[in-house]
Write a protein that binds this DNA or RNA. Structure first.
Lengths: 128, 128
DNA sequence: TATTACGCTTACGTAAACGTCAATTAATTG
DNA sequence: CAATTAATTGACGTTTACGTAAGCGTAATA
């Protein structure tokens, strides 16, 4: 009784995530996805869909596809030998640090935006 | 009694921010900076230095140079006519929304990383 | 004064991330 | 069965953000 496992066509994923099929195929070329084939048609699993979502999230954070792959592969690396695990932890910490720095940059920028917003609102009032 | 206003050479800024002079000249070409000239030598003011810092921060957030310019110009846009002010506020809100979404992405990613970290740490323990 | 150190401009090169055809195939539908 | 419709594989084009010389001027330094 294996689960029927929902699958997706490339056009469905493209529509759902608002990217072109070209983009999805490119991600496959870069080994971020590896859908099954039915004939020569690509059939995407739920897992592929998750990886696509992760890839796009990484992109929104400004990561390159290579960086996205590195990060996402960590999720799927699984439990290996001791050395591997330590390397995994190290990479996770590195990425974590980068993300924290990035969040700090965001917070700084948000503060500046708030400042300018208030100035602009004041100026608007005085002009009424 | 005007203040002496510290200035910088291109190589000094390059060193301080860890970029090449090529990069700084490119930013000028894209109108993100506009240093004075002494002969044909570029002389950067404190204001130029701030704009460079803002530019690099924007880049770290994955913005293109064009987006960085848009944002930074907002800071310097100053108080204009009513319509201008309203447009300014709108753009600020847009950028703010994007940053908040980006921060949400970061938080999601951090959560996942924490999860994987714990798994890996468990696996390490059980292997000792 | 010859050399080194910077700086300048001009311009070609490049990697990343797609966009945009073109030509072909396979499945669906009137 | 002819005509769409969606998918595939090339392959070339494009934008962004620099890298990398080449060739030249200027200023300090050995």
């Amino acid at each position: 009784m294996s689960k029927p496992q929902k699958t997706y066509l490339i056009s469905e994923l493209a529509k759902e995530f608002g990217v072109t099929t070209r983009t999805i195929r490119l991600y496959e070329e870069q080994n971020l996805l590896s859908p099954q084939r039915e004939g020569n048609k690509r059939i995407y699993s739920e897992g592929d869909r998750v990886r696509l979502r992760l890839t796009l999230r990484a992109k929104r954070l400004g990561m390159t596809l290579a960086e996205a792959k590195e990060l996402i592969d960590l999720y799927y690396d699984g439990r290996n030998k001791k050395h591997q695990l330590e390397k995994l932890l190290e990479k996770l910490r590195e990425r974590e640090d980068k993300l924290l720095e990035q969040r700090a940059d965001i917070d700084l920028t948000l503060l500046e935006i708030e400042r300018i917003k208030k100035q602009a609102e004041e100026a608007l009032k005085e002009q009424s």
